[in-house]
Design a protein around this nucleic acid. Structure first.
Lengths: 171, 171
DNA sequence: AAATACGTACAGTTTAAACTGTACGAAGTT
DNA sequence: AACTTCGTACAGTTTAAACTGTACGTATTT
């Protein structure tokens, strides 16, 4: 009976990992990165690459690249423990703050960047317009110009929307 | 010279498509769906599958599946024009309302669903707990229980954040 | 009714991502 | 200094997604 119970708790572990990973994938994590994070998060105590490898049944190499990706995203920290030679990694505690703020940051930098690109393309278009003679071409260029304007406006609205979504207030 | 100008406008078209697609990919569109949408959006006039196929250099089958995906997401509409036999598709005009509201809807339904799943797993865990005797197993189960609680709280916060992000106010 | 045009289902192919195992350099141990 | 242990670079493999071409059902035209 004890063995059966044990198996079921393992089962529940797996279910939780599977389910919560889906949410994290919506933040842009790859499925494997998401599972790795949830594993670390559930485990509480810092884990070594070998432990992660065991827990997920994937190679140590995968764990190495995966955990680096998570560290780069600021979701996991490398921690030290005296006497332990192996690298130890631990999931950051505050889920909401970590995921939301990195997510919002991602949107901000992306929309800003793309908005700048569109502005620069717009300038190129204006330059070309001066050399256009045909009526029909002018119409096409004009229509495109307005579309670019719309896109820039779109980026502004997105940027504004994410500005209002400040995760600090739920810190 | 006229030909060169023409080429450059084509070039600018391509650049715009490439750049704006990146933004739409952040809303969860696949790269190909994003390019297809931008093509339709820039073109203003409704397009046939063959026209899209020409514009993007992809097969008609790809256009067919791609445009269906866009229609399903409410981003593109099938329109009618008397005398035209082919199916015509047109990008919906209001970018912000369309993308934001479908995006927020996606987050809401996903977080709700996953929260429910976690609650049901939580119940399963409680059931199992009553059959646990060993001290050590109880600790593991208890820790997991608290983690699930944290995850549920996380989903609530996300849900709340997206609630405040109402696209209608910029309609 | 025969012929043509259209959209999509389906199977097969191409392309990209995830993953693995070997190998090697750096750090630690004996 | 020889021997382990550890993490990661790299090349090769597996797996999944995107895409294509053929084939077929439906609708339209002659």
């Amino acid at each position: 009976m004890v063995l059966k119970d044990h198996h079921t708790i393992e089962d529940i572990h797996t279910k939780v990992i599977h389910e919560f990973s889906k949410t994290l994938e919506m933040f842009g994590l790859s499925p494997s990165d998401a599972r790795l994070f949830v594993t670390l998060y559930i485990n509480r105590d810092p884990m070594t690459l070998d432990e992660m490898s065991d827990a997920l049944g994937k190679s140590k190499t995968s764990m190495s690249t995966g955990v680096r990706s998570l560290v780069d995203q600021g979701l996991v920290e490398r921690v030290w423990k005296k006497g332990v030679r192996k690298d130890l990694y631990q999931a950051n505690e505050n889920l909401y703050k970590n995921f939301m703020s990195s997510y919002i940051k991602k949107w901000h930098s992306a929309t800003n960047e793309q908005e700048q690109s569109l502005r620069s393309i717009e300038v190129q278009l204006k330059d070309r317009c001066q050399e256009i003679s045909k009526e029909k071409q002018m119409e096409v260029a004009d229509s495109l110009y307005h579309r670019i304007e719309d896109m820039i406006g779109f980026h502004d609205l997105i940027s504004g929307a994410f500005n209002e979504m400040n995760p600090e207030k739920n810190k």
